[in-house]
Write a protein that binds this DNA or RNA. Structure first.
Lengths: 200, 200
DNA sequence: AAAAAACATCCGTATTTTCCGCAAATTTCA
DNA sequence: TGAAATTTGCGGAAAATACGGATGTTTTTT
């Protein structure tokens, strides 16, 4: 079985260990790493290749938002689940705007966190009910259009003709798609897109 | 909207025209061609690229079976819907064994034929209820294994290592996959495989 | 049991496509 | 007004694909 790879980011070793224990009890989850407020977040993500990043940072709330923005824009295949003691509406909204997939209050149960991780992995966002959200693709409209044509057996040149852009521009979109989905090949991108529900 | 491309093969021009009229009334279907008992079936399939081939041949029953076998083995992306006036059990069974996706008796209604075409297009076989059938992949086990790894972002070399075969052999399987699914690229193969239900 | 068909394995060569790095102008939107 | 998106170019290495050819095994058919 393919497990959900989870990276934990936090400040409190004790709390992070507790979360790790909680998640390791689940047969479909694996904590591949736990790092303290990272200075090299990109490297950590590249190393651990997490499907889910659980951020548990009681302080430095601005930093959290910056991290989330960076992750969701540069590594959208790693989905952020925010675990916070502060659940005022503005903050929750800011976390969502930043691109996180879930917001779980520390007042919630462990089941809530686990459920939020599974849902995020499936591409479904989980936020407090008082906010209405839409699931967004991490890809832009143009990237999605390109990806769709890739899945329909088109070459970059053909895609360029069809979308009235140059072959070179298509190549650029393709490389953005590969980076965002964290794959090496267009075939891998198509596979991942179907599994993530981006295509059907 | 992407229409279902249909090629009609038959002996009786009048009947074929009637079928064409029936099918053209459906907004999601397009009859891309109609040929009499073809001498160059391969060429016709390559030209018309049909999703569905409706065979309506009252005579030469052996030929029908041979055609179906050739189509299903060499061009499995074109699914055969057999339209026959002869619906004795042995013949229905032979048609199924040959690799057709549906068997419709001429005693049936037009709706039955249209439904059978849509189901076949989705990869679901339609045969008289007295026979039990299983949907089969047109790909061999090895080809399916290769295709799965392609969808998981692997290169041919990586696939070779993983399956303990040479890169060359992988290339051979890939070309078989492309031919059978009638696509030009591995990315197109992955897209088609997901849509046909070969992968998930 | 023998013949035929399908499957799996391997190799060479030539061409096409993909993918990456570097750089930069224009548009769009919050 | 910045940040993100879109657009395009050049050049080059790597991967994929097409086109041939060859051999042994397994399965199916006769």
């Amino acid at each position: 079985m393919v497990k959900i790879n989870i990276l934990i980011i936090g400040d409190h070793g004790l709390v992070m260990d507790g979360i790790r224990q909680l998640l390791e009890r689940e047969p479909d989850m694996e904590v591949v790493g736990a790092v303290f407020s990272p200075t090299e977040l990109e490297k950590d993500i590249a190393d651990f290749q997490p499907d889910i990043i659980v951020i548990d940072a009681p302080s430095q709330r601005e930093n959290n938002l910056i991290w989330i923005k960076n992750i969701s824009s540069q590594f959208p295949a790693s989905k952020v689940v925010m675990l916070s003691g502060d659940d005022n509406t503005e903050y929750v909204h800011a976390v969502h705007e930043a691109g996180a997939y879930a917001f779980v209050s520390k007042c919630d149960s462990a089941e809530t966190l686990i459920h939020a991780i599974r849902e995020s992995y499936r591409g479904v966002k989980s936020f407090p009910a008082d906010l209405a959200f839409h699931d967004g693709s991490p890809l832009t409209d143009m990237e999605l259009a390109v990806l769709d044509l890739i899945a329909r057996d088109k070459t970059n040149s053909e895609i360029g003709e069809q979308l009235n852009i140059s072959k070179r521009t298509v190549e650029h979109h393709v490389s953005s798609i590969l980076r965002k989905l964290r794959v090496k090949s267009r075939a891998g991108a198509v596979g991942k897109a179907f599994r993530l529900g981006l295509l059907e």
